[in-house]
Amino acid sequence: MGEWTLESSWQTYCGNPPAPGGAEWNWDFWLGGALAAGLALAWSRSADRRALLIGWVLLAFALVSPLCNLSVALFSARVGQHLVILLAAAPLLALGLSAPRRPQAPGGIAAAAACFAVLLWVWHLPGPYVATFRSDVAYWVMHLSLLGAGIWLWRGLLLAAATRPEAVLPAGIATAAQMSALGAFLTFAPRALFPPHAYTTLAWGLTPLEDQQLGGLLMWVPGGLAFAGVAMGALVMAMRRGRFAA
């Protein structure tokens, strides 16, 4: 446990660990202002305002809804929060913020996939994860870096799917594989890895290890399937291009 104590584990951006039925909305004035200002700034430059607006609403939901407060108590809720941002908000924001809509080069897509993988693993390792419970700065660096990497990756995958499926296919496969590997690592770890949840899961009917396993399964199944679907779509596109070329 190191220097970690129960008292310090409660000093988090999203508040105290809630009991069942007690998760609260996050009414942080500065967060609300930042979300509103960011949307206003992006609105005038958006290529697809509908996608931008829906993506922004989903991003706000992940940060403002009781999911934020619940993530203090449950590792699985933190993973769920990340999946809402990375699998729902980020692809829509990638479409809404992509102006002009020029696909990335294959090297750019590979670089985005590598950056996404590194950040995803780093922020789900015990040391960096604990840091986000001790420092608001670390908390926001985590969210902003994951969001930025997610938008970068989804922009490359979505905008190049029709024109460069041969570049999207390996990036989709690699991303699905690394998310599945991270999920499997968390699911099959022999002990709980995250001290902030050592005392916060029992009220929810889960041991810390069971909560971690649930988070691993969320990372493994929805995360892996989402990018496997992207890879499958790219494969279909590549086969069609080959057929038409013949």
Rank of each mutant, 00 (worst) to 15 (best):
G156V: 08
A47F: 05
F116R: 04
F185V: 15
I54D: 00
L144A: 11
D136N: 12
A189F: 11
L214R: 12
A114M: 15
P103S: 09
T132I: 10
V137G: 01
Y199N: 11
L41D: 07
A34P: 01
F194C: 07
Q104M: 13
D211A: 04
C68I: 07
G229P: 09
G80Y: 05
G183F: 07
I151A: 02
A110S: 15
T132N: 06
P18S: 13
R243C: 11
A161G: 02
P106T: 10
G223Y: 04
H143W: 04
V141D: 01
A37D: 01
G108H: 11
A110Q: 15
G38L: 02
A23S: 14
S135I: 08
S135F: 08
V57K: 04
S145N: 06
A111I: 12
F75P: 01
A203W: 11
V168A: 04
G55Q: 02
R155D: 00
L92D: 00
N69I: 12
A60T: 00
A60D: 01
L146P: 00
L217W: 13
A114R: 12
G107W: 14
L182T: 04
L120K: 05
F116V: 02
A192R: 04
L63N: 09
A174V: 15
F194K: 09
A19Y: 11
F29W: 15
A181R: 10
I109G: 08
G156A: 08
P17D: 06
G108A: 10
A149K: 04
E210Q: 15
Q178Y: 15
V118Q: 09
L235D: 12
F133Y: 10
H82V: 03
L159P: 06
W220I: 02
L217Y: 12
V84E: 08
R50Y: 09
P91A: 02
A131S: 14
L92A: 01
T207S: 15
G96Q: 01
W43T: 01
L214T: 13
Q212G: 08
L6M: 10
F194M: 09
P208R: 07
G183T: 08
Q81L: 03
L206G: 03
A167P: 06
G205M: 10
A174D: 14
W4G: 05
Y199I: 10
I109V: 15
A177H: 09
F185P: 03
F29I: 13
W56A: 00
V137R: 05
A42F: 03
W204N: 05
L214H: 12
W10N: 10
S98M: 03
T187N: 08
L218A: 12
A77Q: 05
L53S: 04
G22N: 13
A228K: 05
G107M: 14
L92W: 00
L158R: 01
Q11W: 14
C68H: 06
S71A: 14
R164P: 04
I109D: 05
L74I: 09
A181V: 15
D211P: 09
L217K: 13
A231H: 03
L159Y: 14
F61I: 04
L235S: 13
M219N: 03
S46V: 09
I109Y: 12
T201P: 06
G223N: 06
L74W: 10
A192E: 14
A234L: 07
G38S: 02
